[in-house]
Design a binder for these strands. Structure first.
Lengths: 337, 337
DNA sequence: TTGTATGCGTTATCAC
DNA sequence: GTGATAACGCATACAA
């Protein structure tokens, strides 16, 4: 009887073995390449597998090896972060690295004070390692993961040597940008920045402080606005900065910057004539603004790729650097000229 | 309440059974609740499990049941979409629905013409069902998934009855918004919209066309700009719209809108006095603009929740509606007054 | 109600 | 080089 109908039936190692007159283990070795295997046998198996479009059952492999070939990426769901493109672009990068290594990415969401979803993920052993995409100064997730012993890394900088870190050097970058702006003639450079519970904002603040402390005018607390989260707070900060005679406003990130721009526009201040503006983080939010905004440019997707690859290396038992620093660029635009 | 020290030893059904003088299957039934089980036995098992912090091996369960308890969410990585907050917020919603049902979310990335990552995901059987977060007019991914037989649904609207769809009724929404603007006195309402390869843009265009065709002025092709993707093209479109005497510009989405706003600002046109502006999609990009922008408001996170829950229902064999339509709101703001 | 036996599809450890 | 066979941990049809 001729069978022209392609059989949809899932085919297993057993089937292949039977069909080829071999044993399961031989077929397994032929496919994995591990252990000794005859050249001709291996060729036959590979040919058959290709012809029949054999799909190994990864679940079974997982069970046998106690490995999931999944990476966990933890995203913050706090409302102020939910729309930040950083996390999405990072995720794309991580997916790219994962796919290149035949891993997949499992996404889990946490909020600052509730990491139950993360605990569930670990408890269920659904991933071989975890990436924390944002680091808090007091980070529940990082603290928890350290105790579990599961391989993980954080995107961000910390003085905790127990953490494997991948980050841009925000502190140095912000210091350089701030210094540059001061050297360009801005005497009173204000800072409007988000929550100092976020490690990245602490780094940014430090960079800004280093630069201003070294300047002629020195650091002026009256034009520093930290923990700014709401539109109202930003508006007030801008007003206060102007009142104090700021000639330049540095924004902690892209979201803050676009709201500052809106407020300045509202106040009838033109950029760069009325006031200069720059941002410590770039994104599409700012890219097409008129005038273009001076900002730190970070290759976030690359950050995701590097983080994903590094985590896979950790899982594979390779030694990796405790701290990986990626490059940035200072893009001077018309907003500060 | 004392913190019990996490026991490192992995404990299995066998261990519990031995410890309690029961059999594996009894313990299994006690935990799953399936089949008959004595009340007292069940209580004993549950108590023991709680005390010992037992974590069932989900991989083993997957193998036994041929179920992964994973949802696949397919994200587009095309550069023009990579930073759109829609996908990120949707993903958060999907994760929420998944977590509520003890599922996890596996994210995979595709581009328009390359769905190899999706194929790998399906081939590897890493998920029980799939959500396509954007629908193209000629959608490779949807076509492929139909052939595989795996449960899946699309976020978007299609005339293909074979697709399970979840969407906002963009067509009606855009028609209503356009009609409203016309009725408010805008005689020449221009449209600047993205690729008509995206199903959503086709719907939006149809809504716009329906409304303008029914108006006094009728539909004017000279103020319709489709397939606009680059900043340059947007600038040119805005210029052309103004040249043709447009008194209002409708933007296909938030990204287009923010760039249109930038261009208008550049041209010295004030809103709403010089020209009116509205957008077919809202986001944080627009939320804090000054003046506030009239736009369609969609609860994207809720869309993600509904999509996730619906997919789980499909997987569970429940009958679900072929087409689920979610609500929207027309938010009239100062930009069109 | 509970226990026994078997299957899920691999990988790994041995002999041969 | 190759082939039985035992894990891996759970679910389930069937027997008791």
């Amino acid at each position: 009887m001729k069978e022209n109908i392609p059989t949809k039936k899932k085919i297993s190692l057993d089937d292949i073995a039977r069909e080829l007159g071999l044993s399961k283990s031989t077929v397994s070795r032929a496919l994995s390449g591990k252990g000794r295997i005859g050249a001709e046998t291996s060729a036959r198996v590979h040919q058959y597998v290709k012809d029949m479009d054999y799909a190994p059952n990864l679940i079974a492999r997982s069970l046998a090896q106690s490995k999931t070939y999944n990476l966990g990426v933890i995203l913050p769901a706090d409302s102020d972060l939910a729309e930040k493109p950083f996390f999405q672009v990072f995720l794309l990068g991580a997916c790219e690295a994962a796919a290149a290594n035949d891993y997949d990415v499992v996404v889990t969401v946490v909020v600052e004070k509730d990491i139950s979803a993360l605990k569930r993920l670990v408890h269920n052993k659904k991933v071989d390692g975890i990436i924390l995409t944002r680091l808090l100064v007091h980070d529940l997730a990082a603290t928890y993961l350290k105790k579990t012993g599961i391989p993980f890394l954080v995107v961000g900088s910390s003085s905790d040597d127990a953490l494997v870190q991948i980050d841009t050097d925000h502190e140095t970058a912000c210091e350089k940008l701030t210094s540059l702006l001061i050297s360009m003639g801005n005497r009173k450079t204000a800072l409007i920045i988000g929550s100092d519970e976020h490690a990245v904002n602490v780094s940014r603040y430090r960079g800004y402080a280093m630069a201003t402390e070294g300047s002629a005018e020195g650091l002026d607390r009256r034009i520093i606005f930290q923990n700014i989260g709401t539109k109202t707070a930003m508006d007030k900060s801008v007003e206060a900065a102007i009142r104090e005679g700021a000639d330049c406003i540095l924004c902690g990130d892209d979201i803050i910057c676009s709201q500052v721009l809106s407020k300045l526009n509202n106040m009838g201040l033109s950029i760069p004539d009325g006031i200069r503006v720059a941002s410590f983080y770039d994104s599409a939010h700012l890219k097409y603004n008129n005038p273009p905004i001076t900002a730190l440019e970070i290759d976030v997707k690359e950050l995701g790729v590097v983080a994903g690859q590094s985590l896979i290396d950790m899982i594979s038992g390779k030694e990796i650097k405790k701290r990986t620093i990626l490059n940035y660029q200072i893009a001077l635009k018309r907003s500060t000229q």
